[in-house]
Design a protein around this nucleic acid. Structure first.
Length: 276
DNA sequence: CGGCATGTTGCGCA
DNA sequence: TTGCGCAACATGCC
């Protein structure tokens, strides 16, 4: 479930589970996920190291190690991190494993076991990425500002919109414009902003529409995050319009339409989302 | 069985 | 140099 809010939840989980722990073992053999690095470089980079931080930028996660090494994780379409007991069997779709022990002096075999845990990366379709590196990778540095962590720079955003006649939804989903905004957030944010996703960026009314979209995205992010936080491992979150083509618009009750933009299904309301 | 899926990349063609 | 459209990736689920 990977869009900004889902990745932010993963960051919070990993931070709780891993920061302050030492890696005792690590394993992956999936060259597809570790590309362009070799999966065999994974364990040597991790074992013996302590996790110091877990950062997120858009849909990317970066786990910082005490020797300056970094582990990059992108969840692709179906990736996720789960915590299990140390020594637990391989879980369904498991692609990588990191075993750790919480450092803190306090001997005793029982305590030792309580402080140990295993974190597994699962990913059915394997569209994700997982690799260790010494420096920030290009995928990370190329990302634009994260609308949740960094806020939205209206000047930059307006400039990106005015640049051409690309559909506003495609601009908003461009990871160099807003890191972390995917199909769901873009769809929901534009509905909240009452802006037709097909509108060319350079046709929008500039200060006003940009501000409305920025607010819409932030509302969509906050709402989704709250929903995920509420039912951590339960109910599916529900959306205003995403996945609801043919149903009634929650705002004006017109029938919701669907188009394909940039190869992605886009739901919107012809009645209350203004086309420029 | 067919169609769709929260993401990214690479290719051919303007 | 850009941008656009689209297939491909690998697999689950309805």
């Amino acid at each position: 479930m990977p869009e900004l809010p889902d990745v932010e939840m993963a960051r919070r989980d990993l931070k709780r589970w891993l920061v302050g722990t030492v890696v005792t073992a690590a394993f992956t053999e999936d060259a597809r996920l570790s590309r362009p690095a070799s999966p065999r470089a994974f364990a040597p980079a991790l074992v013996g190291r302590t996790f110091e931080r877990v950062e997120r930028r858009g849909k990317w996660l970066r786990l910082d190690l005490d020797d300056g090494g970094k582990v990059f994780s992108h969840l692709g379409m179906t990736g996720g991190w789960v915590r299990v007991a140390l020594g637990a069997p391989v879980v369904r779709f498991e692609r990588a494993r990191i075993d750790v022990v919480r450092r803190q002096a306090r001997a005793g075999r029982k305590a030792e076991r309580d402080r140990a845990l295993s974190v597994r990366y699962v990913d059915a379709r394997r569209f994700g990425r997982l690799l260790a590196a010494r420096e920030d990778i290009a995928d990370w540095t190329a990302l634009g500002p994260d609308p949740f962590a960094d806020g939205i720079d209206m000047g930059r955003f307006s400039q990106a919109l005015a640049k051409g006649r690309r559909a506003v939804k495609e601009i908003v989903m461009d990871q160099r414009v807003f890191a972390g905004v995917g199909n769901i957030l873009a769809t929901e944010g534009l509905w909240l902003a009452r802006v037709d996703p097909r509108s060319p960026g350079n046709a929008l009314r500039l200060p006003a529409d940009a501000r409305a979209i920025a607010r819409g995205l932030q509302r969509a992010i906050a709402r989704e995050l709250a929903g995920l936080e509420r039912c951590r491992d339960g109910g599916a979150s529900s959306f205003f319009v995403y996945g609801r083509a043919g149903q009634a618009c929650p705002r004006c009750a017109a029938r919701l339409s669907s188009v394909v933009l940039g190869g992605r299904t886009t739901v919107f309301c012809r009645e209350c989302q203004v086309r420029s």
